[in-house]
Amino acid sequence: MVALEHSSITSIWHMLTDRKPYHDLGGAYFTQRDPERATRGAITQLNQLGYTVTLDPRESAA
């Protein structure tokens, strides 16, 4: 609860000091920001569920 309140207060402070409206980054923000980390996280979760993961990169359509 305190962490949520802290996040809200921090967001409000930035909006007021920068005089900018709230801008939602979107649900895929962290995936787009660091796709390798998202990939590692997905692999880790699958490994914890008992799966063995092999990645085969797709060929580019260019």
Rank of each mutant, 00 (worst) to 15 (best):
S60P: 07
T39R: 14
L55K: 14
T52L: 14
I12W: 01
H6Y: 08
R33A: 06
R40Q: 07
R33Y: 12
A62C: 13
T31A: 05
A62L: 15
R37D: 11
A61M: 11
T17A: 00
A61H: 15
D18V: 01
G27A: 09
Q48E: 13
R37L: 05
T31L: 07
Y51L: 11
H6S: 13
T52N: 15
R19M: 07
G50T: 03
W13Q: 08
L55G: 15
E59I: 08
V2P: 01
A61F: 15
D18L: 02
T39F: 06
Q48L: 13
L46D: 03
A28C: 09
I43V: 15
P21I: 10
W13V: 08
L4Q: 11
L16W: 02
A28Y: 09
R33Q: 14
R58E: 15
E36D: 14
G50Q: 05
S60I: 12
R37N: 06
L4D: 10
Q45T: 06
G41W: 03
A28T: 12
A61L: 15
D18G: 01
A62G: 15
Y29R: 07
D56C: 12
A28G: 07
Q32M: 12
G41S: 10
T31D: 05
L46W: 02
R58H: 08
L25I: 03
S60Q: 13
V2K: 04
D24R: 01
R40G: 01
F30H: 13
Q48N: 13
S11R: 02
L46H: 03
N47D: 11
M15S: 06
N47C: 04
T52G: 09
N47M: 10
Q48V: 00
E36I: 05
R19L: 01
K20A: 13
L25M: 05
A42L: 14
S60C: 10
T10W: 00
T10N: 08
H14L: 02
P35S: 01
I9T: 03
L16K: 06
G50C: 13
M1H: 04
T44A: 14
P21E: 12
S11T: 06
T39M: 12
M15Y: 03
P21M: 11
P57A: 15
D24P: 00
L16T: 04
I9P: 00
L16A: 08
V2L: 11
S8Y: 12
A62F: 11
E59Q: 09
R33L: 07
F30Q: 06
L55R: 15
E5M: 07
N47R: 13
E5N: 10
P21L: 10
D34S: 15
S11E: 06
W13A: 07
L16C: 06
G27H: 12
L49D: 10
Y29A: 09
E36K: 11
E36Y: 09
A61Y: 13
L46K: 07
R19Y: 03
V2Q: 05
N47I: 00
A61R: 14
M15Q: 12
A62V: 12
L46M: 10
A3L: 13
R58W: 13
T44E: 12
S7H: 09
R33S: 11
R33V: 03
V53I: 14
S8P: 00
T10P: 00
L25Y: 05
